[in-house]
């Protein structure tokens, strides 16, 4: 009813391999590409579960927008050299791996002790369609939907405020000049540069 077991086995194996690729590869770009593969795979699993709209949203929004944002940031910052530095504390990594394995075992036990419930066989014909998702979104979840729009607006403003340079035109790789040689007669720029000059790296530059 959900999907053939062979298809599920293939998709599950691909999801696990891609997820392991996210955390085991050294190059961050490879990590992001591997994660994009895992996201697409999970989107196909959504479709196999009947959630066709959410599956396509997952692929369009996650793979098409968020992953590309990650790639842009990695290429913008030129982090490649950082990935080749020696690794950190081995003890913490060992403990982390053990803890994650224990967490997986605990989740397995929790799920297997879940009371067996009969799966509902008669799905409504429009289960997971755009119309039915939209109907719920604009009736039962209308307040949450509107609050989500406010959240996105706040995120846009916050991202711009956090990531903008003080002069608006300086490249992040170049040392930013602070203080006397700021263009006169620009009170907004002067105020923002005085705020940003609180960081120690800027003052030593």
């Amino acid at each position: 009813m959900t999907m053939p077991p062979l298809v599920f086995a293939f998709l599950a194996a691909l999801a696990i391999i891609a997820s392991l690729g996210v955390i085991l590869q050294r190059n961050p770009v490879h990590c992001v590409l591997s994660f994009a593969l895992a996201l697409t795979d999970i989107g196909v699993l959504f479709m196999g579960l009947g959630a066709v709209t959410v599956g396509f949203l997952q692929i369009v929004v996650y793979v098409g927008a968020i992953m590309i944002l990650f790639l842009f940031v990695i290429w913008l910052l030129n982090i490649q050299a950082d990935a080749l530095k020696p690794r950190g504390n081995l003890g913490i990594k060992f403990a982390g791996a053990i803890g994650a394995a224990a967490l997986a075992a605990e989740l397995f036990v929790t799920f297997s002790s879940y009371p067996r419930m009969r799966e509902i066989r008669t799905m409504p014909p429009d289960f997971g369609s755009i119309a039915s998702v939209a109907r719920m979104l604009f009736s039962d979840y209308l307040v949450a939907f509107e609050v989500t729009s406010l959240l996105l607006l706040a995120a846009i403003v916050g991202a711009i405020a956090l990531a903008r340079t003080t002069t608006g035109a300086a490249s992040p790789a170049l040392p930013v000049t602070v203080g006397g040689d700021a263009p006169a007669g620009a009170p907004v720029d002067a105020a923002s540069s005085s705020i940003a000059s609180g960081s120690p790296a800027r003052e030593h530059a």
Binding site: A12, G96, A101
Partner: peptide
């Protein structure tokens, strides 16, 4: 495929994510 298989896959993926936060030092 039973739904419990999907739950098991979800548990595995979550644990892999936890392991990634623990063992990797790259913020991204």
């Amino acid at each position: 495929t039973p739904i419990s298989y999907f739950m098991a896959l979800s548990a595995i993926l979550f644990a892999i994510g936890v392991a990634g936060v623990m063992i990797r030092r790259n913020v991204i």
